[in-house]
Simulated assay, not measured.
Amino acid sequence: MLASHGTFHHVYDFNEFHLPFGIHIELPEIMGFQITKYMVLQVIAAVLVFLVFRGLASHAKSGNPVTGYFWNFWEMLVLRIRDDVVRPVIGDPHHHDEHEHAHDETATYITDSAGDRAHEGEVGHPADKYLPFLLSCFFFILFCNLLGAFPWFGAATANINVTGALAFTAFIATYFYGAQMHGPVGFWTHMVPAVNAPAPIKVLLVPMIFGIEAGGLFIKNGVLCIRLFANIMGGHTVMAVILGFIAQAAGGAQWFLVMPGSLAGQIGVGLLELLVAFIQAYVFTFLSTIFIAMSLHEH
């Protein structure tokens, strides 16, 4: 009952939207498949991402600088992910010495390598081919998180099934891009670096290293799922508990003390949640970029 109609309704998935004044919008069942609130919110997030970046692309395709505070805000986020995450972390998978240099002098590497490619007739940066997936991750998660700031909505990323699907998508992308580079089997075999050891020791070490690396790949994506879920779920739970103090104190003299404190706490945590919405989208994207980079480069 508490989950369905009480304090924690904001962090649970339902077959309906609970609105003020006792209004409930029942969601349909299509061919035996029940539509839920979080499914609708994910569709809304995807549509918002499409609309924003369809508009941004239409402004940028002319080749002129994008103007306007609204469009500049989204362009700033795109460039931040591209220039501070994807390009420095992935580098150029075909030039390992340049990749190593990128870790030391990221900005110089980006400038020089982009200039070299311009002379060679190439457009952009080698890591840009991975931008569509990584930018989609960042902005889809960001919009899902931000929708949770609206009353009577909820954050789809507060559901472990949603974050699990996102982490699984990141795993598939890691394998897909790695298999493109090394082949379907090479993706797995390149996890083990060259072992310069006598044959008996090598026979022992290679399976051990492979087991650790392969197991770590699945564990890292599992942590990716739990990290996003726990942070979003935890934040909304704290907000719900703080508001619940008001209901608990109702009817008593302490209500006049509890109510202002709870509202002030709600505002503070709400502002913090806005920051967390961006941070968690960034962290998910950053870790996904690292996993993809590891699948591309030789050890």
Rank of each mutant, 00 (worst) to 15 (best):
H5M: 14
G6C: 09
G6D: 04
F8I: 13
F8G: 07
F8C: 06
H9T: 15
H9Q: 09
H10T: 00
V11S: 01
Y12S: 08
D13E: 08
D13V: 10
D13I: 01
N15P: 01
N15D: 12
E16H: 14
E16T: 00
F17A: 07
H18F: 10
L19R: 09
L19S: 07
L19A: 01
P20Q: 02
P20R: 03
F21V: 03
F21S: 04
G22Y: 11
G22C: 06
G22Q: 01
H24S: 08
I25L: 14
E26H: 11
L27V: 14
P28S: 09
I30M: 10
M31C: 07
G32C: 11
F33N: 02
F33V: 07
Q34Y: 02
Q34S: 09
I35L: 07
I35Q: 00
T36C: 00
K37A: 04
Y38S: 04
Y38R: 04
Y38D: 02
M39A: 09
M39E: 03
V40K: 03
L41M: 11
L41I: 15
L41Q: 06
L41N: 05
Q42C: 13
Q42V: 14
V43D: 01
I44A: 05
I44Q: 00
V47I: 14
L48T: 13
V49Y: 15
F50H: 05
F50M: 07
L51Q: 10
L51D: 06
L51F: 12
V52I: 15
V52N: 01
F53V: 04
F53E: 04
R54K: 03
G55E: 05
L56N: 07
L56D: 03
A57L: 11
H59C: 12
H59A: 15
A60T: 03
K61G: 02
K61Q: 12
S62M: 02
S62A: 11
P65F: 04
P65W: 09
V66D: 09
T67M: 05
T67I: 08
Y69I: 04
F70P: 00
W71C: 02
N72T: 11
N72R: 15
N72H: 12
F73C: 07
F73T: 13
F73R: 14
W74D: 06
E75F: 01
E75R: 15
E75I: 00
V78S: 13
L79S: 13
I81W: 01
R82I: 10
D83C: 01
D83V: 10
D83G: 03
D84T: 15
D84E: 13
D84Q: 14
V85A: 06
V85Q: 04
V86E: 00
R87A: 13
R87N: 12
R87V: 14
R87T: 11
